[in-house]
């Protein structure tokens, strides 16, 4: 998200990956375990309109710090050292554009010989429609959003030669939907602050970890996440020290300590709504069963109205 605000991102929908991508690079992700139907539906074995042979019609490269089931099933596995995403993306940019680089031919970057990167750069340029699918191994590696910024720059520059796109392999349910709604309602996708009566934005300053680390909040409403399981211990301790209201359908590691727990109908099961897929395609999720509990939306609406009319 932050990287997109500096370089933008050239991307495509998953159907384009399926129909056109003849080069698929899985970078720092393991969809065979984290997104189990991804490869069969969109990115590996699936037959696409212009990739009628399916798996045979695609060259698949996996870049990761360790072997996984995804790297095992790839045509090529490039095993890199942790903390080298930025360096390798920087190198690929230079190689794709034919720039003079400052290292010897027998040097290694990210623990991988230069010639391997040269071959990959050539493969990228030779592809008709290439995509990089990148995951937590990129965004949580040393450099964080700058890694994505550098990948974004690479992807952008490859478009001087061919079509080439990047897609983040996002998880965490409808996180894309949350970014979209925040975007159109506040102008910013995450980390929005309303202290002054209008939206302001600054990740690091107004995002959860920073706010909790600096003890800048004195109450919290928590929706659609389980901080007890996902946040570091000191952040959880900071939350436990303040009043919290928690909307959640299941018993989990947070329900035990939240000040108020409001059980809600699980979205997509007992409450309908819009789900934004990782490629930003909006889908309708339907209500399949009745729940005795209200939806998140109903709870928030009633809290808002109670405050407004207090």
């Amino acid at each position: 998200m932050i990287a997109r605000q500096q370089v933008g991102l050239a991307t495509c929908t998953l159907g384009e990956v399926k129909n056109r991508a003849d080069l698929v690079i899985f970078w720092g992700c393991n969809p065979r375990e984290s997104h189990q139907r991804h490869q069969a539906r969109y990115s590996a074995s699936v037959k696409g309109q212009f990739i009628p042979e399916g798996r045979k019609g695609r060259r698949i490269v996996a870049i990761d710090v360790r072997p996984t089931s995804t790297t095992a099933a790839a045509d090529q596995f490039i095993q890199v050292e942790p903390g080298s995403t930025f360096e390798t993306a920087t190198l690929l940019r230079a190689l794709v554009a034919g720039k003079r680089i400052g290292i010897e031919e027998d040097a290694k970057v990210g623990g991988v010989p230069l010639h391997v990167w040269r071959e990959l750069a050539e493969a990228i340029k030779a592809a008709d429609y290439g995509v990089i699918l990148f995951g937590l191994g990129v965004t949580h590696d040393r450099g964080h959003d700058l890694n994505v910024e550098e990948l974004g720059a690479l992807i952008r520059e490859v478009n001087d030669y061919t079509r080439f796109y990047g897609l983040p392999m996002r998880g965490h349910g409808n996180v894309t939907g949350s970014n979209q709604v925040m975007g159109w309602q506040t102008g910013y996708p995450i980390a929005v602050n309303f202290n002054r009566g209008y939206p302001r934005y600054n990740p690091g300053e107004f995002s959860v970890l920073g706010l909790l680390a600096r003890e800048e909040v004195d109450a919290a409403i928590i929706i659609a996440t389980d901080p007890g399981a996902h946040l570091p211990g000191d952040s959880v301790a900071a939350l436990q020290a303040i009043p919290t209201i928690y909307l959640e359908p299941h018993v989990n590691t947070t329900t035990g300590w939240a000040t108020v727990v409001i059980p809600v109908a699980p979205a997509g099961v007992a409450a309908e709504g819009t789900f934004y897929r990782m490629d930003n395609v909006p889908l309708r999720v339907r209500k399949l069963v009745d729940s005795p509990f209200p939806s998140d939306e109903e709870v928030l609406r009633s809290i808002k109205e109670t405050i407004l009319h207090a």
Partner: peptide
């Protein structure tokens, strides 16, 4: 400068 693109299938 920054550039966003999204090809939309079909």
């Amino acid at each position: 400068d920054k550039w966003a693109n999204s090809d939309i299938e079909m």
